[in-house]
């Protein structure tokens, strides 16, 4: 027979270990508030999704905040979370000069999917700039609010190819290319572009432009005609005020005017509870923390460091 003190010690160990094991296997205790934001997902009725910086698929974010590249994946995930939480509206706060066509298109498609269901209203507020891909994303909104001086428009697709052969000749760099097909090294900086490649790139640009154009028409259906859009969709940039005249945006104002618009569209009389859905939840923050790298914490430093150590002029990095 075990003595009483030994029995107590053994029971204590077993109970504590079993409880902790249960916590592990059972996952997160349900009653704990979601530490993603100051308000719980159940109480937030407007999902704020800031879209700041160049839009790409990967994106970069820092656990310290900031970063100049916004990731389409993160935005799509935020839209899905907002939809799942049953928010009444999504408020896009756009401050982006554009980015990759595919990334902007992916965000647009996701927002349109939510908009078509009709349960969630989408309002876009433009800040300093919402051009090209930034406008592509905004076009998915039910209502677009721009500041009079916001730089917007730039509806178009661009591909730039550099030919640095003269520079390389001067510094004594020779490159040999072995390729499986004639277009495998398209847009190579090591030689002059060929007429065939120009044709191919033109076709690519036209196709991308057509998709962009049709997407805007689709997003702004009933607000702008094909004819009216053709007149401004030539790559020109416009101020917010000019964009209102050309029907690219719906009203002028700031972020708070956009919030008022959200209230109007959702029929709310009281102030809506707004929650930033792009803030990584604590699990993602932990992942970022444990995959620590200075590049991740200070994304702007990477380019500077890379160019400094490798002695590469910035022009070559673009």
């Amino acid at each position: 027979m075990l003595r009483q003190d030994r029995l107590i010690a053994l029971a204590l160990i077993v109970v504590c270990l079993m409880a902790a094991l249960g916590n592990w296997l059972g996952g997160v205790p349900a009653p704990r508030p979601d530490p993603v934001a100051s308000v719980s997902s159940a109480t937030a009725d407007v999902a704020l999704i800031p879209i700041s910086g160049v839009i790409t698929f990967a994106g970069e974010s820092s656990p310290l905040g900031g970063g100049t590249v916004v990731g389409a994946q993160a935005i799509i995930r935020a839209v899905r979370r907002a939809e799942r939480d049953g928010v009444k509206a999504i408020l896009l706060n756009i401050n982006s000069p554009g980015g990759s066509a595919a990334a902007a298109q992916a965000i647009f498609t996701e927002l349109m999917r939510v908009r078509r269901k009709g349960k969630v209203k989408i309002v876009a507020a433009m800040a300093d700039v919402a051009a090209s891909g930034g406008y592509y994303v905004a076009a998915a909104a039910d209502h677009i609010v721009a500041n009079p001086a916001t730089l917007t428009g730039s509806i178009g697709v661009i591909v730039q190819v550099q030919n640095l052969t003269d520079l390389f000749k001067k510094v004594g760099v020779q490159t040999t290319t072995i390729k499986s097909g004639k277009f495998k090294d398209i847009a190579s900086i090591y030689r002059q572009i060929t007429p065939g490649e120009i044709e191919l790139l033109k076709s690519f640009v036209n196709q991308s432009y057509q998709q962009f154009f049709e997407a805007i028409l689709q997003g702004r259906q009933g607000k702008i005609t094909r004819q009216e859009l053709q007149e401004v969709a030539d790559g020109r940039i416009l101020t917010g005020a000019a964009a209102l005249e050309t029907k690219l945006v719906d009203s002028l104002g700031n972020y708070y005017d956009a919030v008022d618009k959200v209230k109007e569209l959702t029929g709310r009389k009281t102030e809506p509870v707004i929650r930033n859905y792009l803030t990584p939840d604590w699990r993602e923050s932990f992942q970022q923390l444990f995959s620590f790298s200075l590049d991740q914490w200070f994304p702007e430093q990477r380019l500077h460091r890379l160019t400094y150590w490798n002695k590469i002029p910035l022009a070559l990095m673009e």
Binding site: C16, L17, A20, N23, W24, G27, W282, R283, F286
Partner: peptide, 23 residues
């Protein structure tokens, strides 16, 4: 024992697998 219990709690809180618990 203390470390085991605390790491089980943390692994449960972060929904981690066995590797996560070990981490």
């Amino acid at each position: 024992l203390v470390l085991t219990v605390l790491s089980f709690n943390a692994a449960g809180f972060t929904n981690s697998g066995a590797a996560g618990w070990l981490g």
